[in-house]
């Protein structure tokens, strides 16, 4: 089927424009349709994005790694049961289920920093990117009391009840972002100082687009370190903190 001769495909003589954009331009055509190779590549990208949504947190690996660093780690789940419910009920993804609530309550501990590692819309993104970012960051955080939570079926605001129950001054959540065709494994980090129930987005800071073609783990870690220091200095998070590039570069 892949003969070079007699192909009905008309190429577009402006493939050099692809150097300016990663948009799918100069695809060529057969009749009015997109050539099959391009259709299949698109389908492959969509399949990767769909699979990323179904992926699950590597709980065992995360636990082993974090325990080897010497930090306490809890495993929790939101009130969502199953992926379909997760997609339809963001409200349930923001609340802890009863068992998780009880376990965190019984911890009877207080923390400066709690890191939540959450699946969100792409657990693969977090499986790949969370540990490298944390490894860059943790050596800079001496003197802080730190705990970890692994959260399944989580939305961003699940970090509020987690932070409250662990009496955390500051919560930082690594979570899988909605997969795009060109970035199926993109991780975001949301930070909240003094978590409370019912907080909205303007009280959080966000670092987006941590993936192989986006921000790397070093950049992600230095942004997060910057936000931690700003939040502890100003005792707030969210729109009140502007990322000042000059200060950041001097870090």
């Amino acid at each position: 089927m892949k003969s070079e001769n007699n192909t009905p495909i008309k190429k577009d003589p402006w493939e050099d424009l692809k150097t300016f954009t990663n948009a799918r331009i100069a695809l060529g055509s057969t009749g009015n349709a997109i050539p099959l190779d391009e259709v299949l590549q698109f389908r492959f990208a969509h399949a990767k994005a769909k699979d990323a949504i179904e992926s699950e947190l590597d709980i065992v690996d995360f636990k082993m790694e974090i325990e080897s660093w010497g930090f306490p780690v809890w495993e929790v789940q939101s009130r969502v049961n199953g992926r379909n419910e997760y997609l339809q009920r963001p409200d349930l993804g923001r609340k802890l289920n009863e068992i998780s609530e009880k376990e965190l309550q019984e911890s009877q501990q207080e923390f400066d920093l709690v890191f939540v590692i959450a699946d969100g819309l792409s657990a693969n993104a977090v499986n790949q990117n969370a540990i490298p970012v944390l490894k860059e960051l943790l050596p800079k955080l001496e003197g802080y009391k730190i705990g970890f939570v692994l959260a399944k079926m989580a939305r961003v605001a699940l970090s509020d009840p987690i932070g409250i129950l662990l009496k955390a001054k500051f919560v930082s959540m690594c979570i899988g972002e909605r997969p795009g065709l060109s970035s199926p494994e993109s991780m975001g980090i949301y930070t909240t100082y003094a978590p409370q129930l019912g907080l909205t987005d303007e009280r959080r800071n966000c670092i987006s687009n941590i993936h192989s073609n986006g921000l790397n783990s070093k950049e992600g870690a230095s942004l997060l370190f910057y936000l931690i220091r700003q939040s502890f200095a100003k005792k707030i998070s969210g729109v009140a903190i502007k990322i000042n590039l000059k200060e950041l570069l001097e870090d």
């Binding site: 799918r24 331009i25 997109i34 391009e38 698109f42």
Partner: peptide, 8 residues
């Protein structure tokens, strides 16, 4: 009309 229907 989006190139290749994929808005990057």
């Amino acid at each position: 009309g989006v190139p290749g229907s994929d808005d990057v």
